[in-house]
């Protein structure tokens, strides 16, 4: 009898402690949640490589495709980082290379290499919220919007999500008046983001369609952005992702614009 009670009480204690852990894991500070989500989404490992392809659909169902490889290296966790995007398809953007030095809190440095003219073109930091190579993604979606550009408020904590409202500090810097992010409590991936205009109408939605655990990092493998005004959408798939490959800072230089670093672009490192 005594034994049974003690087992029962052990069980109760165990269950309670599990619950306690769950409750303890519920964060209440919006900035902390957003900061974790930012690290999970854009800073996994010290560096990373992924192949990607996009399927761009317009409202009439016409399709276009883009295929590219992304390399990333963090200079500082949660801070400055570099991206190199090398296009392979379609043939009119083949060998076009995009380089970004991301500087949260400052102006990003961005370059585009156009192989037909052997031209290294610098792109202004201002037009980050414009279409990334004709897709419904913005340049800023690829390299990540700095979390310092918005104020964050925790609206709600559900079973699975932290629901965060984000408002731009500089209202002229973005086309939205606010956006709501559903951030997974389990892995901190923003599973759904809805952008609202000045009339508070949702006009743009970004969703994670699938993710996988890669080298211990929860990683998006498929996402979709929908333009609810035009009816168009872009699906983005990632494959062959690796982290902590040991890339050097020199990979993210003008040299790589003209001569993309095959060592890192090829699969199977």
């Amino acid at each position: 009898m005594f034994k049974l009670i003690s087992i029962t009480s052990l069980f109760v204690v165990a269950v309670l402690s599990v619950f306690k852990n769950v409750y303890a894991a519920d964060l209440t500070n919006a900035d902390e949640i957003v900061s974790k989500a930012n690290l999970v989404s854009y800073y996994a490992g010290n560096d990373g490589r992924s192949e990607a392809r996009m399927l761009i659909k317009d409202a009439q169902g016409r399709e276009q495709k883009r295929q590219f490889t992304i390399l990333r290296r963090d200079r500082e966790e949660g801070g400055e980082q570099d991206f190199l995007v090398v296009f392979s398809r379609p043939s009119d953007v083949r060998n076009t290379v995009f380089l970004v030095a991301k500087k949260p809190g400052g102006d990003d440095d961005r370059w585009l290499y156009l192989p037909g003219l052997d031209l290294v073109k610098r792109i202004s930091a201002g037009d980050k919220r414009t279409s990334f190579v004709g897709s419904h993604y913005f340049y800023e979606d690829v390299s990540g919007r700095s979390i310092r550009e918005d104020s964050h408020q925790l609206l709600e904590t559900t079973d699975k999500h932290y629901v965060i409202e984000n408002k731009p500090l500089d209202t002229n810097s973005a086309e939205f008046s606010r956006y709501i992010a559903w951030i997974s409590k389990a892995n901190f991936l923003p599973e759904k983001i809805e952008y609202r205009d000045e009339n508070d109408t949702v006009y743009r939605r970004v969703e994670v369609l699938s993710s996988a655990l890669i080298q211990g990092h929860e990683t998006v493998t498929k996402s979709k952005v929908s333009d609810l005004r035009s009816g168009g959408s872009t699906t983005l798939e990632f494959r062959f992702q690796n982290y902590d490959l040991g890339m050097d800072q020199a990979v993210f230089s003008e040299r790589s614009l003209r001569k993309p670093p095959r060592e890192w672009l090829q699969r199977g490192q």
């Binding site: 192949e51 392809r53 399709e63 295929q67 043939s91 083949r94």
Partner: peptide, 22 residues
């Protein structure tokens, strides 16, 4: 039609020379 007409994830370089044009 605008199909790539092959496995888009296929690693191009392993297919030998890559040929494009217009």
């Amino acid at each position: 039609a605008d199909d790539w007409g092959d496995d888009a994830w296929g690693e191009e370089e392993k297919q030998g020379a890559i040929v494009h044009g217009f």
